[in-house]
């Protein structure tokens, strides 16, 4: 129930940001949208806390619970941005990602893990937490990157209308995207190292064909691709934004493909 309320608040906050986009972010509108967004994150934290207390386990295992926690990490990133007036508007691109994740989590059911895990304890929490941070770093880069492309298009087309005024400056979006990429890359790299170290220590070898390993490695390669796009002559910011958008789409697409081909089985997300 609390999970659903958080979902509704995220959705309402998103709708409010869209209204502000079309009607102009004047007066108390932006403040109200920020407050609503923050309230959604707070409620989401309560929902996850309640899950922990009720089931005696952190909501990190099983598709529904893990997706909700992943959405929450995005919510925390959003909450950090909200006090910064211009940066807060990135919410309009990040909130749909959070809404979709939380919606998907509710759709599959936010339930405790059915199977017992052999990889548990602080190492597991660290591994999953870092992986979630890595993925949300990419989601943040995607949000900033997509707004960058829109603002770039508006400037090229010489349309200084509602979108131009609402969307932050290219420099701000580039900075947010860069933070997202570095945060995401560092966290995902550490998550991979922790997971690899544990697997090698306890199982002797790493199963390369495991869908979650494939997905994590491809996600990590996507980060490398974004870094690659930032190098070279001219258009570095533009290419970086484009790479973040495409990269995020690849990661999401691969996840869906792996889930479908693995028949929806397994514990990963």
């Amino acid at each position: 129930m609390i999970h659903f309320a958080a979902f509704l608040l995220y959705f309402c906050a998103f709708v409010l940001w869209v209204i502000l986009l079309f009607r102009g972010a004047r007066g108390t509108g932006a403040l109200l949208a920020s407050v609503l967004s923050a309230a959604a994150v707070l409620l989401h934290a309560l929902a996850l806390g309640e899950f922990w207390l009720t089931h005696g386990e952190l909501p990190l295992v099983g598709p529904g619970a893990a997706l909700s926690s992943l959405a929450f990490v995005g919510g925390v990133a959003l909450a950090v941005m909200l006090p910064m007036r211009e940066v807060a508007r990135v919410a309009i691109a990040l909130l749909p990602v959070i809404v979709l994740m939380q919606g998907a989590a509710l759709a599959v059911g936010i339930e405790p893990a059915a199977a017992s895990l052999d990889f548990q304890g602080a190492g597991f929490v660290l591994h999953v937490g870092l992986a979630f941070l890595g993925l949300q770093g990419l989601a943040l880069a995607f949000a900033a990157g997509s707004l960058y492309l829109i603002q770039h298009h508006e400037l090229k087309e010489k349309r200084l209308g509602r979108i131009f005024f609402f969307v932050p400056s290219l420099a701000t979006l580039e900075r947010v995207g860069r933070i997202g990429i570095w945060l995401g890359f560092t966290s995902l790299s550490l998550a991979l190292v922790v997971g690899w170290a544990w697997t090698v220590q306890h199982r002797g070898s790493l199963e390369i064909s495991d869908p979650k390993v494939v997905w994590a490695v491809v996600s990590w390669l996507v980060f490398l691709g974004i870094f690659g796009a930032r190098r070279g002559r001219g258009r570095t910011e533009y290419r970086s934004a484009l790479a973040a958008v495409v990269g995020f789409a690849v990661v999401v697409g691969l996840y869906l493909a792996l889930r479908i081909t693995s028949g929806g089985e397994g514990l990963f997300l």
């Binding site: 211009e86 603002q151 400037l155 200084l160 400056s169 290219l170 420099a171 701000t172 900075r175």
Partner: peptide, 18 residues
């Protein structure tokens, strides 16, 4: 919006460079 050529130039520069 900006209602003079000079202020439009400033607005454009701000939206590009922050």
């Amino acid at each position: 919006g900006s209602a003079s050529v000079a202020s439009v130039a400033v607005e454009l520069a701000r939206k590009i460079f922050g």
